[in-house]
Design a protein around this nucleic acid. Structure first.
Length: 212
DNA sequence: ATCCCGAGGG
DNA sequence: CCCTCTGGAT
């Protein structure tokens, strides 16, 4: 995908969805962090189902810790990888209270030091909660970036660095949600819906009919 | 490279 | 049945 096509790609997605947002449900920065931590290799629908049980009972680090490991697991048992996520979330809450006054830190280093928080989750929090133009690369963004030719790369980090270079700054904050939603509903893993795709004409993957 | 790990879809 | 879902730790 060439530079002019990248402009068109994001301009088109922007026109269809001027104010894109996460489909994860949260009402505080801590809830966002917890929801994103729980969302690893899980659907947002499944995460929302669990957090609708969890957050009314425990939506602060102290309240999560008050649940204990078994109590937390009971609330999130329907999410894949729930045992490791419960353990990590508890360890993260302990660190938030011990080192950060119970608040979610704003630096990449501090975020990635939290158990269960890697580069992708840190990028999401930095972007969605704090407005930084980071490019979190999840399964959707990795696939869409490679398939369309927007940012080819063998690893998520390689894709991320290319995305930062290639996405114009004015699009970079919202690009996260545009790419995820595009991957979820149009550029799907198994059967990409190219016939219904608004950006097929600037995609390396979609077969294009020769002009004329 | 491997493990974790439930739910939904094809 | 198999694949996929806003990955991270070992």
């Amino acid at each position: 995908m060439q530079e002019q096509q990248i402009q068109r790609f994001f301009t088109t997605l922007q026109a269809a969805n001027p104010l894109p947002a996460s489909e994860l449900e949260y009402s505080s920065v801590f809830e966002l962090l917890a929801a994103v931590l729980l969302s690893a290799q899980a659907t947002d629908v499944g995460v929302n189902k669990a957090t609708r049980r969890l957050f009314p009972v425990a939506n602060t680090p102290a309240r999560i810790l008050a649940l204990g490991l078994d109590g937390l697991e009971a609330h999130i048992r329907t999410i894949g990888l729930y045992r490791s996520k419960a353990r990590h979330l508890i360890q993260t809450c302990e660190i938030l209270l011990a080192r950060h006054g119970g608040q979610v830190p704003r630096s990449r280093e501090a975020l990635e030091a939290l158990p269960g928080v890697g580069r992708k989750t840190a990028n999401v929090v930095l972007n969605v909660a704090f407005g930084e133009p980071t490019c979190a690369v999840d399964t959707h963004i990795f696939r869409v970036s490679n398939r369309t030719g927007l940012a080819p790369g063998k690893t998520p980090l390689a894709v991320e660095l290319t995305l930062v270079k290639r996405i114009p700054e004015r699009f970079r904050v919202d690009a996260h949600h545009w790419l995820i939603l595009h991957g979820r509903y149009v550029c799907q893993a198994r059967k990409p819906r190219c016939a219904a795709c608004s950006v097929a004409d600037c995609c390396d993957f979609t077969p294009k009919t020769t002009a004329g």
